[in-house]
Design a protein around this nucleic acid. Structure first.
Length: 223
DNA sequence: CTACGGATTTTCT
DNA sequence: GAAAATCCGTAGT
């Protein structure tokens, strides 16, 4: 597992980086343990013209200011007043683009990841396998599993000295992650003509966020 | 299995 | 005041 410290990797445009992040890893080291998720689903948010992006119109607020800085920084924001979402700033500074990490699969630190999600209790009706698939199948769940929140907003993912505990990494398996599917983004009904842009990317056959479509597919499978 | 609503902070879509 | 880059529990099929 190799940490990505080259800012040029994050300086790519959001659509390119969203694809490039699939199969790579988010690592959060807590108390000497490397909580690690394989990234399986991402979404690209572009700059001033993207009506779904927090940086639309070029207006800077207390929430979105990290999007207006350099690439390779963690952008954490609160949705619906409850859930934190982990994003990575990208492209050249001044483009204010970012990639949202929507889903991931546990690679290391599974017990702690489950605990952070409150899934470490006695096994209920839903079996252990179902719990694992629900560990990080959505942006809010993913941030909660890794223990990410307000304190991590603005961390430089490339800086090993200032930020030794939160970063993106790759290994041999990352070089060929498998087929990538592109689809519409989720939860942005307000974004007019940008609502249906195919700017969500995921790895075929791996964990993806729970959407209406996925629930529908599950239903059809049972018929 | 589906439908619905509640939680709760930031922005103005 | 309303809606938001969401998740979960409950109630009704």
């Amino acid at each position: 597992m190799h940490r990505i410290t080259d800012r040029a990797f994050f300086a790519q445009d959001a659509l390119t980086l969203a694809r490039a992040l699939l199969g790579k890893y988010i690592v959060h080291e807590v108390d000497g343990e490397a909580l690690t998720l394989r990234i399986t689903e991402t979404e690209a948010y572009l700059g001033v013209t993207d009506k779904a992006s927090h940086s639309r119109g070029g207006r800077i607020t207390a929430r979105n200011r990290i999007m207006f800085g350099p690439p390779g920084f963690a952008y954490l924001f609160l949705v619906y007043g409850l859930h934190w979402c982990f994003n990575i700033t990208c492209n050249r500074e001044g483009q204010h683009e970012a990639v949202l990490i929507r889903a991931g699969e546990s690679v290391a630190g599974t017990a702690t990841l489950l605990k952070n999600r409150g899934l470490d209790g006695p096994a209920g009706r839903s079996g252990k396998s179902r719990k694992l698939s629900a560990l990080a199948d959505g942006p809010g769940k993913l941030a909660m599993a890794l223990g990410l929140g307000k304190d991590h907003n603005g961390l430089d993912l490339t800086d090993e000295a200032l930020n030794p505990t939160l970063y993106i990494a790759w290994d041999e398996a990352s070089l060929n992650p498998g087929p990538i599917i592109e689809d519409e983004r989720i939860g942005i009904d307000y974004a007019a003509e940008y609502r249906t842009k195919p700017w969500r990317f995921y790895l075929e056959g791996r964990v993806v966020s729970l959407t209406k479509e996925k629930r529908l597919q599950r239903k059809q499978r049972h018929v």
